[in-house]
Write a protein that binds this DNA or RNA. Structure first.
Lengths: 286, 286
DNA sequence: GTTCCGCATGAATCGATAG
DNA sequence: ACTATCGATTCATGCGGAA
């Protein structure tokens, strides 16, 4: 287990071949999208995307524990006026190779990229595809319910008028849209729709997804002894989420510069106490 | 055109064979979901769903105008712990047969059914698949613009406070200008995520979707001369939406009882004035 | 210490232009 | 005909300096 809590530079397909079978509890990743991030990752053409991804998915399947889960954040591009089919083709091919397609969560991005076209509106959602090896997998549903404690009440009381307005506009995930709704409630189960804004103007580390996203899935699918893998770690968001939650992490990226950024970022992240986590989570979800 | 503003009993595949080519502007429908509503539709097995649907889709393609749009409201069931693949297989097969898969809208069902399962959360979204015959189709984006987001609401509120003070001290200067700056920005284009609650406990007609859903798409893809078709009309929601908006409609259903219900319902629907429509729409979205 | 306001910043897409 | 690049379009968010 010498790969634990490391950020490893390399092609994840090759790097993972050195990993033992059944060693990872959760794989959470957002691979480079087709024709996207050409400068850093070279860009994969839509027509070649499935063939590019499948051998990697084969390694993911091998290293994942039978009770583990694979969450794939992805969205197809518009090509020649149509949504391309590589994502849904990928689902079918992965099933042929042994994956179970358990669920499709929906990430509603409240701050979608602006723009106007004659034939479509702004794209404001992405897929979070859940794959498993077995029908029985670890799931800790209570971990993503929203508890109502004194800290929430206190925070609510201290909210400024502006904050209240903003809390309405910002996002909760399925579990509680704004703080005021929690008052008088004990716990609420979420749905499979997650409302969360992208962190587009975060100058410290601009990431493809907000840290609240991996936090949510790590809490849902792992316990404190678990290992979380992100084979396209990028700026380290998934690893930071895992470390905050006291989980072990492994990050892989083909780009050494990103690995450096992720390692640097992780030195500034410490596991948080439960109360801090709760508050952190609220901020992240807002 | 003797089919206009009629509710026709029969299998839509057979009924549509009597329709001329290129005669429909918008097809909006929510077909019977696989293996559900067994009593009324006889139940279609998930594994047979694609073969069941494709010959109907062939007729839809034929009767649709080249500038028309087909909106398919559908969601795959969970079968044996997995999301079934019949919906994504259907997309691929329809493309092979000439349809363009232009877009996938997301219907976020704000009040999803309660329930709890060990391996999944409540399903609170459905697909609204957009298919077209051609890359160029009719789209009236201005008809569905929405109020600008809450971020502006908060600032607008504060701004107007300031402007009120200014108005008292300085007569007429600056006031109009500041407001007019925001008046131009009070409406924005929507995204491809539609937030709408399901209609619960409507005793007159239990429908698969709220009337606000077809209203939105009818406004987006048709003008007042258009014909809207729903080949699985059920209790008549799509036809009611079309009639309200002053469009022509055609509804088809294999179940005579549903046809009766739809016809009865339509006698109670009248085209509304613009102001009434606006108000109605606001209620539907809330 | 708060709150307010200006401003940069995005996993985008289309159509036109150029090689 | 097929690919690469570029400009125009657009809006929610968070940061940082100002009030």
């Amino acid at each position: 287990m010498d790969f634990v809590n490391k950020i490893i530079q390399g092609d994840c397909e090759q790097v993972l071949k050195g990993f033992p079978d059944n060693s990872i509890d959760l794989i959470f990743t957002s691979p480079p999208y087709a024709d996207q991030r050409k400068t850093t990752y070279g860009g994969v053409r839509p027509a070649e995307y499935v063939d590019w991804f499948l051998p990697k998915a084969e390694q993911f399947l091998r290293v994942l524990k039978p009770t583990g889960t694979f969450i794939l954040n992805i969205k197809e591009r518009a090509v020649n006026g149509e949504r391309h089919t590589y994502v849904i083709e990928l689902i079918l091919k992965m099933r042929e190779r042994g994956w179970l397609w358990t669920e499709e969560f929906m990430w509603h991005k409240k701050n979608a990229y602006p723009g106007k076209w004659p034939n479509r509106f702004r794209d404001s959602w992405e897929r979070l595809l859940q794959f498993n090896k077995r029908r029985k997998f670890n799931m800790y549903q209570e971990a993503v319910m929203v508890p109502v404690g004194d800290w929430a009440q206190g925070r609510l009381r201290n909210l400024s008028e502006t904050d209240k307005i903003r809390d309405e506009s910002k996002v909760g995930s399925g579990f509680g849209k704004n703080i005021s709704k929690w008052v008088g409630r004990d716990k609420v189960y979420p749905t499979n729709v997650i409302h969360m804004a992208t962190e587009c103007s975060n100058r410290q580390h601009s990431a493809a997804f907000p840290v609240g996203l991996p936090i949510w899935f790590i809490k849902l699918f792992t316990d404190s002894n678990s290992i979380v893998l992100d084979p396209f770690i990028g700026s380290g968001t998934t690893a930071a989420a895992a470390k905050q939650l006291g989980r072990k992490y492994v990050g892989i990226d083909i780009n050494e510069e990103y690995c450096q950024i992720a390692r640097q970022r992780l030195t500034q992240v410490q596991p948080r106490l439960l109360e801090e986590l709760e508050e952190y989570e609220v901020r992240a979800m807002q």
